[in-house]
Design a protein around this nucleic acid. Structure first.
Length: 581
RNA sequence: GCCCCGGUAGCUCAGUUGGAUAGAGCACAAAAUUCCUAAUUUUGGGGUCAGAGGUUCGAAUCCUCUUCGGGGCACCA
């Protein structure tokens, strides 16, 4: 709907020779907003105020000049120059009717931007280490990423989502040894879990599933346990323990158990996310980068470009040359590659696969990591601006005003699965994205569980269910609904609340584009709440199923289009739209 | 010490990227149902936009400083 104003303004400006510069449509679009106050019309543009300075003109005069040049348009009732130089646009109601008609037709509810389609995006998110179940923090990433993906797709982008599986490196060995220790304990061997090992219940579950039994002669506890005090040197202790184990049971058997453990955890994560309605187009294995020789190839290329040097027995990447605050190690003294090494290659790989923009959704505690990944991209010959990092802040759970403790170390943290079971997928999805991602989230468990109007999810879903119920009543009362008749009688909808509802419906597409542009799914959530409010308010004031056929069909048309918008909006957020509650 | 995010009504938060008189929900006070789902609606009070300076026609929004809260500054991931 905003397009009407954008085009009109553009047509007007084109006629003014002095202003006709290289302004594109998106510039005009940026100057136009919905009015906050209906006494200012439907839309307002501050274009005259913005251009006044560079043209050295009085903004009001300029606004009047533009006004004189705007051609007649059968959607625009009148244009006013107001205040310091705003241009206020008043639309005919028919413009809103056209919008309702479009929504009722079976086409897409919103018009995608065709230019976006050639833009390939790769959205990477969650990417939690496969060393344990997902917790409530990952849940926020999952909900945010999945919603963002849906929104970007809805406005026209070609977008794929990916989960990066950190399936190589030291932490996988630690996972494996934790499982092995558990297996040994089940055989009544006198070994204790290293302090740096994974302590959670799930380790037990994995060991039960693997159910491996070691031979008496291959495990000699005395040879297994390092001669160091675990409490003094946790890292050294566990590394030594891993080494001993590999030697005693053979690296082959160790890797076999590691693979089994990884597969079990990965499966659990995949099931968890899929039950949560979070689907990925691909699961990218970190380990595959090494296996396919991509890491070596990239390192050689960096070496050739003189981005690497040796110092203190390690190999360093000259990140400072490319904007990072310090140089970073890519190969450690012990010859192991760092996590960052894989990440340079992984991001390079993403670009090589043909993605224009890479969106990474990271925890806010990873912000210090951005500069080095960007440096890595530059070094591999890409533009670091192609990487867009969205940071997500932490989640705290509150139950009746009391903050719930959460500790990863003890393994007693609240999992995503527990949360989903507690409050349900719908409430979890909605609450996770209800707030801006860069804001700390206080997740109110009691509110999420409550089935009252205080709970925004139920409030919105209830609006949908009410409309569904009205449609059922139509049939039960054997009333006929004629959509064409409804559309041609939309002009009968003249009450303030009816107009308000039509205005809200017409904003949907603008909200989606804004939400996509700002990568802010929470705007959509806020909008849906407002829309539901407009409907409830209208529903309370007017009866839809009245005897007057023309007005009834018009009202049903309005209700059905509201239902369609709510339903699509909720589905983009991964929330269901029940027909009865 | 350096870097990132945040501070808006009693509480939880929006604020369309610099616009006109700063908005919701909850809580509080009062009202509405012979009628399509009361899981609803209507009305009301409530603000030094953390503080101070600056930029300009115009600042919650941009810049500088101060302050408070969270996070980050590895040959961990």
């Amino acid at each position: 709907m905003k397009k009407i104003i954008v085009k009109a303004l553009h047509a007007g400006i084109k006629k003014l020779p002095k202003i006709n510069k290289a302004y594109d449509l998106s510039f005009f679009s940026e100057t136009i907003e919905r009015t906050r106050d209906s006494s200012h019309g439907d839309f307002t543009s501050n274009i005259a105020l913005r251009l006044a300075k560079s043209l050295k003109k009085n903004p009001r005069e300029l606004a009047n000049e533009i006004f004189d040049c705007i051609p007649k348009n059968n959607s625009i009732k009148k244009i006013e120059v107001a205040g310091p130089g705003f241009m206020n646009f008043y639309l005919y109601d028919s413009a809103y009717h056209t919008e309702i008609e479009r929504i009722l037709s079976n086409k897409d509810l919103i018009e995608k931007n065709k230019d976006f389609k050639k833009h390939k995006l790769l959205l990477e998110f969650v990417s939690a280490n496969p060393t344990g179940p997902l917790h409530i923090g990952h849940g926020r990433h999952a909900a945010f990423g999945a919603s963002l993906r849906n929104i970007l797709e809805a406005v026209g982008y070609d977008v794929k989502s990916e989960y990066y599986v950190n399936d190589s490196g030291r932490q996988m060995d630690i996972l494996c040894i934790s499982v092995i220790i558990h297996l040994l304990q089940r055989e009544n061997q006198r070994v204790s879990m290293p302090l740096a090992g994974y302590q959670g219940q799930y380790i037990k579950t994995i060991s039960l599933a693997i159910d491996h039994k070691f031979n008496e002669d291959e495990i000699k506890i005395k040879e297994l346990i390092p001669k160091i005090d675990d409490r003094d040197n946790q890292d050294q202790y566990i590394d030594c323990l891993i080494e001993n184990t590999k030697r005693l049971i053979s690296a082959k058997k160790f890797n076999q158990i590691k693979k089994q453990s990884l597969d079990l955890i990965k499966k659990d994560i995949q099931d968890d996310l899929s039950e949560f309605g979070v689907l990925f187009d691909s699961w990218f294995s970190e380990e595959s980068l090494d296996r396919n020789g991509e890491i070596d190839k990239a390192l050689k290329s960096l070496m050739k470009k003189n981005y690497l040097y040796e110092q203190d027995g390690a190999t360093w990447f000259k990140a400072t040359d490319l904007g990072d605050e310090k140089d970073r190690v890519v190969i450690r003294k012990n010859q192991n590659k760092t996590y960052f090494t894989s990440d340079i290659v992984y991001h390079h790989n993403k670009k090589e696969r043909g993605f224009d923009t890479l969106i990474d959704i990271l925890g806010s505690d990873h912000h210090g990591y951005i500069a080095r990944v960007k440096a890595g991209l530059e070094a591999m010959g890409h533009n670091s601006d192609d990487l867009d990092v969205q940071l997500v802040q932490f989640v705290s759970l509150y139950e009746n005003g009391v903050k719930q403790a959460m500790s990863t170390r003890s393994g007693e943290f609240i999992t995503l699965r527990q949360l989903r079971e507690e409050v349900g997928n719908d409430a979890a999805r909605f609450f996770y994205i209800m707030r801006s991602n860069e804001q700390h989230l206080d997740f109110d468990l009691a509110l999420a569980k409550s089935k009252t109007s205080e709970n925004p999810v139920y409030y919105i879903q209830y609006a949908h269910a009410r409309i569904a119920s009205v449609i059922n009543q139509l049939n039960e009362k054997s009333l006929k609904y004629d959509q064409k008749n409804g559309i041609s009688n939309l002009k009968l909808l003249t009450s303030e609340k009816e107009r308000q509802l039509m205005v809200s419906i017409s904003r949907f597409s603008e909200i989606l584009f804004l939400s996509a542009k700002n990568k802010a799914p929470h705007s959509l959530a806020q909008y849906l709440r407002d829309l539901a409010n407009d409907f409830h308010s209208y529903y309370n004031e007017s009866i839809i199923l009245i005897d007057d056929h023309a007005l009834r069909d018009a009202r049903v048309s309005l209700a059905i289009s509201t239902k369609k918008v709510i339903s699509m909006g909720l589905s983009l957020l991964g929330v269901s739209s029940p027909s009865s509650m």
